[in-house]
Simulated scan of single mutants.
Amino acid sequence: MENKEIVLTILNEIKNGITPIHTAYNLTLDMWAEFIEYLDDKKYITDVTIYWFGNDDTYYDERVHSIDLTKAKLTTFGEKFLAEEVN
Protein backbone atom coordinates (compact mmCIF):
# COMPACT_ATOMS: atom_id res chain seq x y z
CA MET A 1 0.00 0.00 0.00
CA GLU A 2 1.33 3.42 -0.92
CA ASN A 3 1.73 6.12 1.73
CA LYS A 4 -1.07 8.21 0.24
CA GLU A 5 -3.41 5.21 0.32
CA ILE A 6 -2.52 4.58 3.95
CA VAL A 7 -3.20 8.21 4.88
CA LEU A 8 -6.56 8.22 3.09
CA THR A 9 -7.57 4.90 4.63
CA ILE A 10 -6.66 6.07 8.14
CA LEU A 11 -8.65 9.28 7.68
CA ASN A 12 -11.61 7.36 6.27
CA GLU A 13 -11.60 4.90 9.17
CA ILE A 14 -11.51 7.72 11.73
CA LYS A 15 -14.30 9.50 9.87
CA ASN A 16 -16.39 6.33 10.07
CA GLY A 17 -15.78 5.88 13.80
CA ILE A 18 -13.31 3.02 13.38
CA THR A 19 -10.09 3.05 15.42
CA PRO A 20 -7.32 2.15 12.95
CA ILE A 21 -4.65 -0.32 14.07
CA HIS A 22 -1.08 -0.47 12.75
CA THR A 23 -1.13 -4.23 12.24
CA ALA A 24 -3.87 -3.88 9.63
CA TYR A 25 -1.34 -1.98 7.52
CA ASN A 26 1.63 -4.28 8.23
CA LEU A 27 3.48 -1.36 9.85
CA THR A 28 5.72 -1.33 12.88
CA LEU A 29 4.61 0.81 15.78
CA ASP A 30 7.36 3.34 15.01
CA MET A 31 6.27 3.62 11.37
CA TRP A 32 2.65 3.92 12.50
CA ALA A 33 3.61 6.76 14.83
CA GLU A 34 5.16 8.62 11.89
CA PHE A 35 1.87 8.45 9.97
CA ILE A 36 -0.16 9.55 12.99
CA GLU A 37 2.28 12.38 13.79
CA TYR A 38 2.10 13.53 10.17
CA LEU A 39 -1.70 13.62 10.24
CA ASP A 40 -1.68 15.44 13.56
CA ASP A 41 0.96 17.95 12.38
CA LYS A 42 -1.07 18.64 9.22
CA LYS A 43 -4.10 19.22 11.50
CA TYR A 44 -6.11 16.51 9.71
CA ILE A 45 -6.86 14.73 12.99
CA THR A 46 -7.15 15.72 16.61
CA ASP A 47 -7.29 14.07 20.04
CA VAL A 48 -4.48 11.56 19.47
CA THR A 49 -1.78 10.65 21.96
CA ILE A 50 1.55 9.00 21.21
CA TYR A 51 3.32 7.51 24.19
CA TRP A 52 7.10 7.24 23.99
CA PHE A 53 9.65 5.29 25.98
CA GLY A 54 12.20 7.73 27.36
CA ASN A 55 10.36 11.01 27.15
CA ASP A 56 13.23 12.92 28.73
CA ASP A 57 16.41 14.46 27.33
CA THR A 58 18.72 11.68 28.52
CA TYR A 59 17.35 9.28 25.89
CA TYR A 60 18.51 9.67 22.34
CA ASP A 61 16.75 6.65 20.84
CA GLU A 62 13.11 7.33 21.63
CA ARG A 63 10.79 4.54 20.66
CA VAL A 64 7.03 4.43 20.60
CA HIS A 65 5.33 2.68 23.48
CA SER A 66 1.74 2.98 22.25
CA ILE A 67 -0.65 5.20 20.33
CA ASP A 68 -4.12 6.12 21.55
CA LEU A 69 -6.56 6.81 18.74
CA THR A 70 -9.72 5.96 20.66
CA LYS A 71 -10.78 9.63 20.80
CA ALA A 72 -9.37 10.61 17.39
CA LYS A 73 -11.53 12.84 15.23
CA LEU A 74 -11.20 14.32 11.78
CA THR A 75 -10.80 18.07 11.71
CA THR A 76 -12.38 20.32 9.12
CA PHE A 77 -9.03 20.29 7.30
CA GLY A 78 -8.99 16.49 7.39
CA GLU A 79 -12.51 16.22 6.04
CA LYS A 80 -11.74 18.69 3.26
CA PHE A 81 -8.50 16.86 2.34
CA LEU A 82 -10.29 13.50 2.31
CA ALA A 83 -13.14 14.83 0.16
CA GLU A 84 -10.72 16.41 -2.34
CA GLU A 85 -8.59 13.28 -2.63
CA VAL A 86 -11.45 10.80 -2.90
CA ASN A 87 -13.35 12.74 -5.59
Score class of each variant (00 low, 15 high):
Glu37Pro: 10
Asp57Ala: 15
Glu85Ala: 01
Ala83Gly: 03
Lys42Asp: 11
Ala33Phe: 05
Lys42Ile: 03
Glu79Gly: 11
Ala24Asp: 13
Val86Arg: 09
Thr76Met: 10
Thr49Pro: 07
Leu8Ala: 02
Asn12Gly: 10
Ile21Pro: 06
Ile67Gln: 08
Asp47Tyr: 10
Glu79Arg: 10
Val64Ala: 04
Tyr25Asn: 01
Asn87Gly: 09
Val64Lys: 05
Glu2Lys: 07
Thr70Asn: 12
His22Thr: 01
Glu34Ala: 13
Asp47Cys: 04
Leu74Gln: 00
Thr28Phe: 04
Asp56Tyr: 07
Lys4Arg: 12
Ile21Val: 11
Ile6Val: 01
Thr49Lys: 14
Lys43Ala: 15
Lys43His: 08
Phe77Tyr: 15
Arg63Glu: 14
Asn3Lys: 13
Val86Trp: 07
Ala33His: 05
Lys15Ser: 01
Lys15Gln: 02
Thr49Asp: 12
Tyr59Gly: 04
Glu5Tyr: 00
Tyr60Thr: 14
Leu74Arg: 02
Val48Ser: 08
Thr46Asp: 11
Lys15Asn: 03
Thr76His: 12
Asn26Lys: 10
Thr70Cys: 00
Ala83Lys: 10
Tyr25Ser: 00
Tyr38Gly: 14
Val7Arg: 10
Phe35Gln: 02
Thr23Asn: 13
Tyr44Ile: 11
Tyr38Arg: 14
Glu13Val: 02
Tyr25Phe: 12
Asp57Pro: 14
Val64Cys: 03
Glu62Trp: 15
Ile50Ser: 09
Ile6Glu: 01
Leu39Gly: 02
Val7Trp: 06
Thr75His: 04
Ile50Val: 09
Val48Tyr: 05
Asn87Asp: 14
Tyr51Asp: 13
Ile36Val: 11
Val64Thr: 11
Thr19Ala: 07
Asp68Val: 04
Leu27Ala: 06
Leu82Val: 07
Tyr59Cys: 07
Asn12Met: 03
Asp47Ala: 08
Leu39His: 11
Ala72Leu: 03
Thr70Pro: 07
Val48Ile: 04
Asp56Phe: 12
Thr19Tyr: 01
Ile50Cys: 06
Leu39Lys: 06
Ala83Ser: 08
Asp40Ile: 03
Met31Gln: 12
Val64Asn: 01
Leu69Ser: 02
Ile6Arg: 07
Tyr59Glu: 10
Gly54Phe: 09
Leu27Asn: 01
Thr46Glu: 11
Asn87Met: 06
Lys80Gly: 05
Asn55Gly: 14
Lys42Trp: 09
Leu82Cys: 12
Thr19Trp: 03
Tyr51Trp: 13
Met1Val: 06
Phe81Ile: 00
Ile36Tyr: 10
Phe77Gly: 08
Ala72Asn: 01
Glu5Trp: 02
Leu11Ser: 07
Thr70Val: 05
Asn12Arg: 06
